[in-house]
Nucleic acid binder design. Structure first.
Length: 152
DNA sequence: GCCAACGTTGGC
DNA sequence: GCCAACGTTGGC
């Protein structure tokens, strides 16, 4: 079992949105970064743990927990000229982009903020707190996962 | 293969 | 809204 952190701008899609979805499941479409894609496609399995992170908002931080409910499959928004995630280079017979389905688990009782994660010596080297990091999907060790959960 | 231009991310 | 970081694109 692997552990992940996935970023979303709450103005676009929040943990509350996920909770309200039918079946509390959402396809995680729109990832257009190769590193993030490779992790989703090659390393994510059903049952993996996900920290749901709100970015680009008043208080950036981890707000909830989700889980992988379907392994990677082609991101069909890449085929849709109407979609803002459209990519003419992604073909149905040879898809370039993939997505997983994410299922709601729970919201945290409080936001574990980026500020406190940044200032925490126990999380030295954690990708999220490294300067300039922009990955929207990143792996965590079980130790990091458990430690961050203990902060709740 | 280099690298300048450009677009995007995301904290502040 | 600003801007640093950084990935991608495309001319050469």
């Amino acid at each position: 079992m692997n552990y992940w952190l996935m970023k979303s701008e709450p103005s676009a899609f929040s943990i509350e949105d996920l909770q309200r979805r039918p079946g509390q499941i959402e396809p995680w479409d729109g990832v257009r970064n190769y590193q993030a894609r490779n992790m989703m496609r090659d390393d994510m399995a059903v049952g993996d743990g996900i920290f749901f992170y709100h970015s680009n908002c008043d208080i950036p931080g981890i707000v909830g927990i989700a889980t992988v409910v379907r392994e990677a499959y082609p991101d069909d928004t890449a085929f849709d000229p109407q979609s803002k995630h459209f990519d003419p280079k992604s073909l149905r017979e040879r898809p370039r982009w993939f997505m997983v389905d994410v299922g709601f688990v729970r919201t945290l009782s409080r936001t574990i903020t980026l500020t406190e994660l940044k200032g925490d010596p126990a999380l030295d080297g954690f990708p999220l707190t490294r300067r300039g990091n922009r990955l929207s999907v990143m792996p965590l060790s079980k130790v990091q996962w458990d430690y961050i959960l203990s902060l709740e």
